[in-house]
Design a protein around this nucleic acid. Structure first.
Lengths: 365, 365
DNA sequence: CTGAAAGCGCTTACAG
DNA sequence: CTGAAAGCGCTTACAG
């Protein structure tokens, strides 16, 4: 290993160098790498050999400079790569992109609008062919100039006043049915752990939670609603606050994966401290998580596949790219060209699954 | 929302168009976006205004074409984005890269050497400044030409005969200590679920497992060693095979996250089928996973932080990039220039933590 | 089937 | 402080 093949820094070889070594013109090299249509096989062989010898890799950046050429890049901005949910989501996008011969540029905005803006600006600067965004806020950086230039697909969340395609989860319905499932199991006093109101899914899932209460003629106790947790640690702290009440809820609706894991961590801590599992709340989680089947308290999952969500977003993007290619350059700004098709929104349904059933337990309170 | 700001496709504006609108030369636009050194504030203002109005974004691809300019891109190839472990890893790389003003190009090789080769070729074609790779095999595509041109850091796994920097986990030691910890808890008959021998970490972790046995004068039962599971489903199947034996192991060492989750899923299924948790094996997992504290069987984690692993790999990469910049272009191939510094390997230690302690349980067999 | 010329968007010298 | 010229690596016409 000591005498491996590490070397000093060199410039990357160019078409010209390959051409010289192969004894052909740069055009022949270019044509060969473009598929070799109308290049003598013998010359192709010599070109590939020379390229091989020099370690030539066609410069995609230079290539994409020519008008009509595209970068082969899709920009993907998610809010939190630390959440396995978004790892799956990114995988879904990546797999579809790869199938279309595209690569993804990935950034995590960490729910910071500034960082998101930077990401978008950078993606645009690199001339990505399209954008898949889980917007963390206003999606600043998505000016009309950008939207007019490339397809954008929002995933999970929508941004007000921006008419782009979107793939959403049926948040209200899922939260509604998950909450009802808790009522059906005998709970009447539910806690809520989720995102702030400013987050699209936070609003929608809370709405489903409230609607289920209304439908059953039950009141939401605002003291049991905690909505500012973004990570597992803060979710555990919020759960602790619920459990420490004189009148803790008998079930807790967790509006996402991170809140569910945090809540369960806290439940685990209580069990370790001697609290019987039977007296701890059941969990309803919007979003799946691994090992849900092994939890010591009842668990219901409002489920959808994040990988499929990512794949659907990518598919929508490539449909748009395809349409764009069919009707390429509409006359600029003549007002008479047909309007672009209206924004499409796909809503992915959820399934509600009781992963660990409610055992016989007395109603607290 | 219906009347949002979607528009027809347009070409992206260029320096020339901004220059015309601002009434300056393209150079003044370029200088303004480069920081504005020696451009009258008044002109800068006009340039920014024009740029704003046109939705101008400097074309990074064109920019990186000039010699000396770098792409600002780091290529990251991991083996499996579906594994939360690698999501964390990618986040670690991304965060450090962002701090250095770089963006990451992310690809998942799915352990397929062909796909990995494509990824590397593509990254090189896009003129990434460096590569962070979790190699899925021989890392074909990493010819000496590539290695001589940009820094490469391997993470988790090494590739024989390629002298690149690497950040490794102390696999042998971690597996050794995790196994010993099972012995100390009273187990003498351990199962093993892991990767094939061809995977670097698979080999090393198995080695630690074997060494611990040797140290205690115990024999590894080859029938209890299953090493071809890459995902949760196949790991669960393998676990089922172990549990269905007449003489099942009393503890199972899982060489990674995916195998641990699969094993625990199967344990959950058995418990649901009425098997008492007390008669099911304890788990030792190399790699952390969420909710480990809530498992119904004893769990020991051989732990390290994948995010830190990614961050360390990225830091190593930027160190190399920095060195390269200091001593820029060595005379090409004159044989007299100083050899590049030897490949550096950083090994990240693991901690062994009993997350759920062994309760009093009889030894099976 | 092959090549010489021109230009994609940008920035590095070079000249003022 | 500002600009005209040249060229980065590639490919699209255009000519043979």
């Amino acid at each position: 290993m000591a005498e491996g093949r590490q070397q000093r820094a060199h410039r990357a070889p160019t078409v010209n160098e390959v051409a010289r070594l192969a004894g052909v013109s740069p055009m022949t090299v270019s044509r060969t790498f473009a598929g070799g249509a109308s290049v003598r096989p013998e010359l192709q062989r010599r070109v590939f050999e020379a390229a091989q010898q020099l370690g030539y890799h066609r410069n995609e950046n230079a290539r994409s400079l020519r008008p009509g050429q595209s970068s082969g890049l899709i920009g993907v901005a998610i809010t939190n790569l630390a959440n396995p949910y978004y790892g799956q989501f990114a995988l879904g996008v990546e797999e579809v992109a790869a199938r279309f011969g595209r690569r993804i540029l990935l950034g995590s905005s960490n729910e910071e609008p500034d960082r998101e803006r930077q990401l978008i600006d950078d993606f645009v600067g690199r001339r990505v062919e399209g954008l898949v965004l889980v917007p963390s806020g206003p999606a600043a950086g998505l000016g009309s100039a950008v939207l007019g230039r490339m397809p954008v697909v929002f995933a999970s969340r929508l941004v007000a006043d921006v008419a782009a395609d979107a793939v959403l989860v049926d948040d209200v319905d899922g939260a509604f049915r998950g909450t009802v499932s808790a009522f059906d199991a005998g709970h009447t006093r539910l806690g809520y752990l989720g995102n702030e109101q400013s987050v699209f899914t936070g609003r929608r899932r809370y709405e489903g939670f409230v609607r289920a209460h209304e439908m059953r003629g039950l009141a939401v106790d605002p003291d049991l609603v905690l909505r500012s947790q973004r990570d597992v640690t803060s979710a555990a702290t919020a759960m602790a606050a619920l459990l420490d009440r004189d009148d803790p809820p008998t079930a807790v609706f967790c509006a996402n994966n991170r809140n569910a894991i945090g809540a369960l961590d806290e439940i685990g801590a209580r069990i370790d401290a001697g609290v019987p599992a039977e007296s701890l709340p059941a969990i309803v989680s919007f979003d799946r998580f691994e090992l849900a089947e092994l939890m010591p308290v009842p668990v219901t999952i409002v489920d959808h596949d994040p990988r499929e969500l990512g794949a659907a977003a990518a598919r929508l993007l490539f449909e748009r790219l395809d349409e764009k290619q069919r009707s390429p350059d509409l006359a600029p700004d003549d007002g008479a060209s047909p309007p672009s098709p209206a924004a499409r929104t796909i809503t992915i349904p959820t399934t509600v699954t009781v992963v660990r059933p409610e055992r016989d337990r007395r109603q607290a309170g």
